[in-house]
Simulated assay, not measured.
Amino acid sequence: MNFEVVLTCAVTGAGATTHISPHVPVTPEAIAREAIEAAKAGASCAHIHVRDPETGKGSRDPKLFRDVVDRVRASGTDVVINLTAGMGGDWVPSKDNWAMPGPGTDMIGPEERLTHVKDCLPEICSLDCGTLNFGNDDTIYISTPPILRRMAALTQEWGVKPELEVFDLGHIRFAKAMVEEGLIDAPPMFQLCLGIPWGADQTVETMAAMKAQLPAGASWASFGISRMQMPMVAAAVSLGGNVRVGLEDNIYLSRGVLATNAQLVERARTIIEAMGARVLTPQEARNKLKLRGADA
């Protein structure tokens, strides 16, 4: 059981959800506002993607990240900033020649994947620890060992804590190798990502199995998607972990009722407190996770 919980809100993601819910933020102003509102509702941390303001699709434009981060930092509302570094790994084979990239492919190297992280220097950035069949179409998310080792080395150099996002047991195995190689500073920070097609399933048994493979001393969180978001909150707290909610992973408060990020944070906080635990403030989260800005 975890009695002092870091609660992250993933405020927008990159998925095709903007046509379903008007609450999914698109512009830098809206994304920053959602991060601030999530913090006011009790979130310790905001996990941030950006979107093309014209199309609503996920973007990796460093200027958009800078705009969001500057707005959050200037707001006077404290929240730990966690920027995605997962863009730039999409491979979609051409239907005319399966050996060649087709429409939708966006593959870049490790330095470019981290351009916005170097510019903004958040406390945390995500690091997706392996390759994955992403959904039921031909999309493959690619993160090879050399790419990941280079990204880990760069974030270590900049003092940004990598959130080791793992979608199956093999990802944990590789992340542990990076820890053993000295590329990840102690304590390593894991995110057990459950329910993403076709990664690990979102069940208590799966979460427990993945937790059992984490290195000693690691901090960890987990999340589920869609209707399993809140059940996985309870499961993670029960098993000793931290939690993540937000519109990146689930757009509903209840069946047919569209949620806001603040409402999802409030619902998660209610669950956590009903279990006899409490949500940490942003500064307490920095101290617990040993992030930049932690108290000496």
Rank of each mutant, 00 (worst) to 15 (best):
T55Y: 05
A186P: 07
G42V: 11
G240L: 02
G195E: 04
H23F: 14
E29C: 15
F3L: 15
K57V: 12
G246A: 05
K290G: 07
V50H: 00
A294L: 10
A38T: 11
N133C: 13
H49V: 00
E284I: 00
W91V: 12
E34G: 03
S238N: 14
Q213P: 04
S254G: 08
I147K: 01
Q156S: 15
M232Q: 05
F190Q: 03
I140W: 11
K288T: 14
V243S: 07
S75Y: 00
G76T: 08
G170F: 02
M1T: 13
S226Q: 03
E29L: 15
P62Y: 08
G86E: 03
E248V: 14
K118T: 05
S238R: 12
L253G: 12
G256F: 14
S126E: 08
P146V: 03
P145A: 05
V160G: 09
A268D: 00
E157L: 07
A177C: 01
D295L: 11
M100F: 04
R173A: 13
G241L: 07
A234K: 10
A274W: 02
P215N: 01
F174I: 08
D70E: 07
P122H: 08
V179Y: 07
R51H: 14
E165C: 04
R33E: 13
V92E: 05
T18F: 15
S44W: 01
V279K: 03
D201F: 13
L192A: 10
N2I: 10
V233Q: 06
T115R: 14
E37S: 11
M207P: 13
V237A: 07
A277N: 14
T144G: 04
M275I: 06
I31S: 01
V257D: 15
G293L: 08
A296F: 11
P162M: 00
P25H: 01
G276V: 05
